[in-house]
Design a protein around this nucleic acid. Structure first.
Length: 416
RNA sequence: GGAAGCGUGCCAGAGUGGUUGAAUGGGCCGCACUCGAAAUGCGGUAUGUCCGCAAGGGCAUCGGAGGUUCGAAUCCUCCCGCUUCCGCCA
């Protein structure tokens, strides 16, 4: 959500943002509704002022009562109209796109994302490369058939080495972030609808979400529940930034991606994620600074795992409604001969915090909406696909990355 | 799942239909007193929104949404949350 005053003053910026992001949004319609809203509001408030003045003091004389009753009826009619206008206004406000940063490239889909740096050496294998599914099934790390039997389409069981690897990864990443001063959380995967609207996942992403109650949905990322954590709070400036590293299971219906990655662990309905979330001061430079930090944090993880990756800046068409700018980290997948997205770092300015009503008081006592950012720290099992492929040996085994050995009893995953 | 109670400002806590945005105490900020501090005294201390260059003013808000009334923090309905007891349960 943006500030209506900002929208009134800069309708052209909004129009341009909608064009760049490829979303349909009619600013003129919003401004017309806004004008009507303010007009009705003024009338309503004037009548209320009259009513308040009239009903002060004690009991009323009959003639006075008659007039007040009439006024009450008029107010009721206006109030109803106000309700309609307000609903329409609020609904439209939810669809106003955040303005992308000027450094965000033009483009429609992820194919238009622009590579900004690369790290690591693409591994060369002197034997036929196996893909992650073959490797993991051969090593008894993954059971897709029984996964589907029990869980349905895209269901999976992780087994043996994959389980140990998962726990080692979680420990490794958690320790790293705690050392950096991030507060660890285990966040709820069940969240009320307002948190989804607040983070900008709803109303547009309805099909992607599992609805499990009248008001409850399963989160597709703990960003949703962690952002909800501070909803309706006023923080102190000295407490900013708040940095969180949150663990949760994540659920995505993957509606609309039926053709993609239909087998394996790259795209599943249920996965686990350690997520970085930062709330910082309402300042563009601050947002940029922390955006670079959370991106670097994740790069450090991938580097420590010695996986080749590249960072792309997402084009405007690949940005969410609320995102100002986004970097994806794409990690090398030998069997596919290309990089695949493993991390996604974005900042929102106050788009989310306006919806969630998260504010802070600055040193002078003024209140502002905080800025918010988030990035994947590590998502499993997806990253395991990268690991097993990059670390495979001629024998068909998988070497455990060095940094994980502290938590792993084996240095090589083989069939036991 | 059954029963009871509760939800007021930064905190504690009054307030059960009529200038109550809300007593009182604490905290916090400012000023005075003091060489300084403590103690004391005085003053200030919500948010949103609309109009306005501003000063200022209007409106809304006592968990949320409705309702009754000329008038609601106070009465009614529903919802949410918390607490306690019972049942069930990892």
């Amino acid at each position: 959500m943006l500030d209506i005053k900002f929208i009134r003053d800069n309708p052209d910026l909004i129009k341009e943002a909608a064009r760049k992001k490829g979303v349909k949004f009619d600013v003129e319609q919003l401004l017309a509704v806004d004008e009507r809203r303010r007009h009705v509001l003024k009338e309503l408030e004037n009548k209320r002022a009259k009513q308040n003045a009239g009903s002060r003091g004690g009991p009323k004389a009959p003639t006075e009562l008659e007039e007040l009753k009439k006024l009450k009826e008029e107010i009721k009619v206006l109030d109803e109209e106000m309700g309609h206008v307000e609903r329409e206004f609020n609904e439209l406000m939810l669809w106003v796109p955040q303005v992308p940063d000027s450094s965000v490239p033009e483009g429609k889909t992820d194919a238009d994302n622009v590579e900004i740096r690369k790290w690591g050496k693409i591994p060369k294998f002197n034997f036929p490369v196996k893909d992650n599914i073959a490797l993991m099934e051969t090593l008894d790390m993954l059971d897709l058939e029984r996964g589907a039997k029990v869980s349905g389409f895209r269901g999976y069981f992780l087994k043996n080495g994959a389980v140990l690897l998962s726990h080692a990864l979680w420990n490794f990443v958690l320790e790293k972030f705690v050392k950096k001063g991030y507060k660890p959380l285990i966040a709820p995967a069940i969240a009320r609808e307002s948190n989804f609207v607040g983070t900008g996942w709803l109303p547009q992403g309805r099909d992607e979400m599992y609805k499990i109650g009248d008001d409850e949905f399963l989160v597709g990322t703990s960003e949703i529940s962690v952002m909800g954590y501070h909803a309706d709070e006023i923080l102190q400036e000295k407490d900013l930034p708040r940095k969180y590293i949150a663990f949760s299971p994540c659920y995505r219906s993957e509606a609309g991606s039926y053709g993609k990655d239909t087998k394996g662990i790259m795209r599943v309905h249920e996965f686990y994620k350690l997520e970085q979330v930062i709330l910082c001061k309402a300042d563009h430079e601050e947002s940029v600074k922390w955006h670079e930090e959370i991106t670097r944090n994740s790069e450090e993880i991938v580097q420590a795992l010695k996986l080749p990756y590249r960072v792309v800046v997402n084009c405007a068409g690949d940005l969410g409604l609320g995102q100002v700018k986004k970097y994806d980290i794409e990690t090398w997948m030998p069997s596919q001969g290309r990089y695949r997205e493993t991390h996604s770092a974005s900042y929102f300015h106050d788009f989310q915090t306006r919806r969630l009503n998260i504010r802070y008081r600055d040193a002078s006592g003024k209140i502002h909406f905080v800025h918010s950012l988030n990035n994947t720290a590590l998502a499993t099992p997806r990253i395991i696909a990268n690991i097993v492929e990059n670390y495979q040996t001629k024998k068909g085994t998988v070497i455990v990355p060095k940094v994980l050995r502290k938590w792993s009893s084996v240095r090589e995953i083989q069939l036991s």
